[in-house]
């Protein structure tokens, strides 16, 4: 039995190594510069997204889909379409939610998890998270992506967030996928598709009436 577990462990290690290859310092520098340059040139992003939350203990998954909009510097709009209609906009420190015709606004400071996730997403999009002192970064790659794993330095953050994996497209250095691994074992994957970069986006869509 022990031998079987050892063999399985060996194979799974070999498998993961084949999937994610660690990178040398030159490649890491190239990724940082690539992400930084793309970020400087990016003023808007719109895309579809699919969000999957996997609950390991329950062996269940929650899947939501919608539209994502970003406009420099700190405007975000998450428009959930399925399984519910729901819009969140974030303008700096202010979160506004449109839910069933009702608008609610509150400060990100009243919701620390929200505030932290918002910082991670904006930091991933504009590349600042790679040099963020509150994370240690580990660089890998697979066939299509450079994968940056960020581990929180702060013990407080570590209590809820184990690590974040950001999948940068090897061709254009934009973010294709974000994975947030929680300390309790669950994880959330957000996959961005049909990305439109630098298409005009009105400020109006970040204001909910």
């Amino acid at each position: 039995m022990h031998k079987l577990i050892f063999i399985l462990a060996l194979f799974s290690f070999g498998y993961s190594s084949a999937q994610h290859k660690p990178l040398d310092a030159v490649t890491i520098q190239r990724i940082k510069e690539g992400v930084s340059q793309v970020s400087k040139k990016t003023s808007t992003i719109s895309s579809d997204f699919t969000q999957e939350k996997e609950m390991s203990i329950l062996n269940d998954k929650i899947i939501t889909t919608g539209k994502f909009y970003f406009k420099k510097d700190q405007l975000l709009r998450w428009e959930y379409i399925h399984p519910f209609a729901y819009i969140i906009t974030i303008r700096g420190d202010v979160i506004t939610i449109l839910d069933e015709g009702t608008i609610k606004s509150f400060n990100t400071k009243s919701n620390k998890v929200f505030s932290e996730v918002n910082r991670i997403i904006i930091g991933s999009v504009n590349g600042t998270l790679l040099d963020d002192a509150s994370f240690t970064a580990d660089f890998n790659k697979n066939n299509s992506h450079f994968i940056v794993s960020l581990t929180p330095v702060s013990a407080v953050v570590k209590e809820s967030l184990d690590r974040i994996a950001i999948y940068f497209n090897k061709t254009d250095y934009t973010v294709d996928k974000l994975e947030m691994y929680e300390s309790a074992g669950d994880f959330t994957r957000i996959t961005f598709t049909n990305k439109q970069i630098n298409q005009p986006i009105s400020d109006e869509i970040f204001i909910l009436h």
């Binding site: 999957e52 998890v113 994880f187």
Partner: peptide, 30 residues
Amino acid sequence: EHHLTGLVFIKKMPDAGCRIIFSNEFGMTY
């Protein structure tokens, strides 16, 4: 002063109890 929004997932457990998971819109568990 805390305002939390998101999704609640409820699963009935074999012992007739319930497991309740509340997470924010981005999937992080409260």
